[in-house]
């Protein structure tokens, strides 16, 4: 059920990237897509009523394995957030430079290249 939400979010992002004319809205669409995937990754590792995957000495190992959520997707998500941050920063800075060159954010007016 939650996975459907992720796909809905992904499609919202994709819709923004594909149909919007404004550079900033396209960047927002990209960000939404990244977050949809991050959410999906987190939900893969989630289990209901799960506990944090930190094992202390008082814990029973079998009980721990049964209840703890999967920590690996969380590590993946941290990495993917950092990557998303890098892409976002670069995209915004390119968009600012484009605004200085063309005086607009509208992609209909930014078409010096035919391609």
């Amino acid at each position: 059920m939650e996975f459907i939400l992720c796909f809905f979010l992904l499609m919202v992002g994709l819709y923004a990237v594909v149909t919007k004319r404004n550079l900033v809205k396209i960047i927002i669409g990209l960000a939404i897509m990244e977050y949809a995937i991050n959410l999906f990754l987190i939900l893969i590792g989630y289990r209901k009523d799960g506990i944090a995957p930190i094992m202390t000495s008082t814990m029973d190992r079998v009980e721990f394995l049964r209840k703890a959520v999967d920590p690996l997707p969380q590590a993946l998500v941290i990495t993917s957030i950092v990557i998303g941050f890098g892409i976002l920063a670069l995209a915004v800075s390119i968009a600012i430079r484009i605004y200085e060159r063309f005086g607009t954010f509208d992609i209909n007016e930014i078409k010096k290249l035919k391609g």
């Binding site: 920063a89 915004v92 800075s93 600012i96 430079r97 200085e100």
Partner: peptide, 8 residues
């Protein structure tokens, strides 16, 4: 800082 302050 680069996004807010500098320009080309």
């Amino acid at each position: 800082i680069i996004l807010a302050v500098t320009r080309v």
